[in-house]
Computed example of a mutant assay.
Amino acid sequence: MGRRLSRLGCLATFVSLLTLTIAAPAAAAGYDSTDYVALGDSYSSGVGAPGQSGLCLRSSQGYPGRWAAANKPKSFTNLACSGAETGDVRNLQIPFLSSSAELITITIGGNDAGFASTVIGCQVGTDAACAAKVASARTDIENSIPGKLDATYAAIKRKAPNAEVVVLGYPQLFDTSSASCGIAGMSLAKRRVLNEGARLLNDVIEGRAGAAGFTYSDVEDEFAGHGICASSPYLNGLTVIPPQNSFHPNATGYTRGYLPALNSAL
């Protein structure tokens, strides 16, 4: 019996050492030699989270800052800016992108689709007016935005040809499990049509990112059940102070929504 236990002990030790040996490369494969750059719009600059500063409203509590704090890359630069469209990324961000960048993340396309004006218009207008605004945005999403994304992704590849690029999508803004959304909340019809518009935009972004050879990470699963009007939302509803936080992820949304989506893509 003692010999059997001894043999089992030796076997267990061998398995443990083998496991450590196999796991060692993974543990060593960190990001301490990685140059990381975040590009894009307010969803990458960190609007909606605490600590926003500067004209671009960047916050270290957005998903890029949180990822950098957790993974400690060699360098981290956040070039994302609130309100940015695809042309702004090409003209105002990529010129400052290092050609040696090894990891790039980006959210872009929402402002090209008229995200802010559409949502605000739906907030104050009728169901029919909201549907009309989303239909107008849908035309842009289908006809003009694919080319704008192609040009932007191509510019990133030219400037940093060796970088791994992760393109993140946008969440479904609204929870639609209940007809009620509070006194100032939108009707169920408005919430549904806005979610449909966001889904279409994500489909286009995913397609163009794939065509560019980039990795696309969908955040809809991470935000599922946590839209505006849910009991534990990951997004800010209409916000008076500060107004720019309206319809952007809150701190929890960046931590439990965007950050896990980025980690899964990597």
Rank of each mutant, 00 (worst) to 15 (best):
M1E: 14
G2H: 15
G2E: 15
S6A: 15
S6R: 15
R7Q: 14
R7K: 15
L8W: 09
L8V: 13
F14Q: 07
F14S: 12
S16T: 14
A23G: 10
G30W: 05
Y31T: 09
S33Y: 02
L39N: 02
D41W: 10
A49H: 01
Q52S: 11
S53R: 12
L57T: 01
S59H: 08
S60N: 13
Q61P: 11
Q61Y: 15
G65C: 05
A69S: 12
N78T: 07
A80H: 11
C81L: 00
E85R: 14
T86F: 05
D88W: 09
V89K: 09
V89Y: 03
R90T: 00
L97K: 08
S98I: 05
L103G: 04
T105K: 01
G109T: 00
G109C: 00
A113I: 10
T118S: 08
I120C: 10
I120Y: 13
G121I: 07
C122P: 11
Q123Y: 11
G125N: 04
T126F: 03
T126V: 03
D127K: 11
A135G: 08
A135P: 15
D140A: 13
I141Q: 05
E142H: 13
K148L: 06
A154V: 03
K157P: 03
R158F: 13
N162G: 13
N162P: 02
A163I: 07
L168N: 04
Y170N: 04
Q172G: 14
L173T: 05
S180D: 12
C181E: 01
G182N: 07
M186H: 09
R192P: 13
L194E: 09
L201Y: 00
L201M: 05
D203W: 12
I205S: 00
I205V: 06
G210R: 09
F214A: 02
T215Y: 07
T215V: 02
V219G: 05
E220K: 13
H226G: 05
H226Y: 00
C229D: 02
P242I: 01
P243H: 02
N245F: 04
F247V: 00
H248W: 09
G253T: 07
P260Q: 05
L262V: 03
